[in-house]
């Protein structure tokens, strides 16, 4: 099997891993799997298309605007999700709230971009060659970003008091509050950080994969699948799960043809859920 297939799989896997990581960042203090998360990916793709592709803005300026816009989207998303959750008290409120947020953002993208698919030129048009296989700088950037997001998230959770507080909030927000931990601001910040991360990968990956405005839920499901395979809430799990479905998809696709890629992903998901119901690195998920 050619090395190219593995490199392409590594790239796709890194995209899924970053999506899963961004969902993990929101999950850590809230224990909510945000089904609207993939809309952040579309925001990155749409703004990339608009600013880099159409307006030909310089990179730095585009990035700055993207980060601000994504932060704003994260802020709005937090209100759309947490307000119903806090007000209703139902343990299923988060499902409806995050799906509703996904639909609202998806409609907005669809209205603005009728019949458009997002694509634009690589930001840095250059390839490097590894034993005859090609790896564009664009793809390399995504892989490096995945490694960076993983290390930062993992170390932050394990080594800092703030990281420990985030785990504490997930377990018991009231007790965290009486210890002086600013529970609600931390949750806001998690939504903002998660959205900025996923928007950045949307921005970086779109020139390679070409993205439709309505594809947000597809990316959400890929990230969700990766998180479940790896173990929900674990940064390590997000990376392992993401890489696994990315590489699997690429290998199976080249071997049996396109439609089998997605099939194999969900087939493996089913097997893993039977063998390891909490994923590779997941703790038992408490009833919510």
């Amino acid at each position: 099997m050619s090395l190219q297939i593995w490199i392409d799989g590594l790239f796709a896997g890194s995209v899924f891993a970053i999506i899963a990581l961004s969902m993990t960042i929101v999950y850590q203090p809230t224990r909510i799997m945000n089904f609207a998360q993939g809309e952040g990916f579309i925001l990155g793709a749409a703004l990339g298309y608009q600013m880099v592709g159409v307006w030909k803005w310089p990179l730095i300026q585009s990035l700055a605007v993207l980060i601000i816009a994504a932060a704003l989207m994260g802020f709005i998303m937090e209100r759309m999700v947490m307000l119903p959750v806090q007000l209703s008290g139902s343990k299923f409120a988060w499902i409806i709230a995050t799906l509703a947020a996904a639909m609202i953002f998806q409609s907005a993208f669809n209205i603005k971009y009728v019949n458009v698919t997002f694509s634009y030129f690589d930001i840095i048009e250059k390839d490097i060659s590894i034993f005859g296989a090609k790896l564009s700088i664009q793809k390399l950037l995504v892989i490096l970003m995945m490694i960076a997001v993983f290390i930062i998230n993992d170390q932050f959770l394990k080594r800092t008091l703030w990281g420990r507080s985030i785990r504490a909030i997930a377990h018991n927000p009231d007790t965290s509050t009486i210890l002086g931990i600013p529970t609600k601001p931390v949750i806001k910040l998690a939504f903002i950080t998660g959205t900025v991360v996923i928007a950045l990968v949307g921005f970086l990956a779109t020139p390679v994969i070409i993205v439709a405005p309505a594809a947000g839920l597809f990316f959400t499901i890929q990230g969700f699948t990766a998180a479940i395979i790896g173990g929900v809430g674990s940064p390590k799990g997000a990376v392992v799960g993401g890489l696994m479905i990315g590489i699997l998809d690429s290998v199976v696709r080249s071997w049996l043809g396109g439609t089998w890629g997605l099939f194999s992903t969900f087939f493996v998901l089913a097997i893993i859920l039977i063998l390891k119901p909490n994923g590779f690195f997941g703790k038992r998920v408490e009833g919510r």
Binding site: R167, L179, I181, K283
Partner: peptide, 13 residues
């Protein structure tokens, strides 16, 4: 916090 160590619980304090 049951998943945190004893020392981490104290540090959170």
């Amino acid at each position: 916090f049951p998943d945190h160590t004893v020392e981490e619980n104290l540090q959170l304090g």
